[in-house]
Design a protein around this nucleic acid. Structure first.
Length: 114
DNA sequence: GTCTTGACTAAGC
DNA sequence: GGCTTAGCCAAGA
């Protein structure tokens, strides 16, 4: 198999700075896969054991976790985000902590990975 | 080869 | 704010 897209997604997620979150769609764009948000979900679901990927920085387009509130994964994501200074407001993260497709962020992140 | 599923998104009501 | 519908594409059965 040659899951090149998956590696691209992993790299994209890894580039998300601490204290920041972004949507699956944003990660997909950054990975060179615009519109493949669901592929990001698949890739994250199939993360290898021992990974250090900040998957918890990836949220849905509405700034809510992909997991139902109260679930183990939801609580874990919430805890990890809070540890980085991103406190969930109810089930959502602050707008200021979400997204990276902006002039400043674009200059910081660059048009594409190396 | 076809059908179902999915850590999704956007648009419409 | 929420729910429904349609579109999307790869993996697994």
């Amino acid at each position: 198999m040659n899951p090149d897209y998956r590696d691209a997604i992993y790299q994209a997620v890894r580039r998300i700075p601490a204290g920041r979150t972004c949507a699956y769609g944003d990660v997909a764009k950054m990975a060179g896969l615009p519109g493949r948000a669901r592929l990001v979900g698949r890739a994250l679901k199939e993360l290898p054991a021992g990974h250090t990927l900040p998957w918890y920085r990836v949220l849905r387009a509405d700034r809510t976790p992909a997991f139902p509130p109260g679930s183990d994964e939801f609580e874990r994501q919430k805890k990890l985000l809070q540890a980085e200074g991103v406190e969930l407001i109810g089930t959502r993260v602050p707008k200021a902590c979400f997204g990276f497709i902006a002039d400043e962020d674009f200059a910081l992140w660059g048009p594409k990975p190396d």
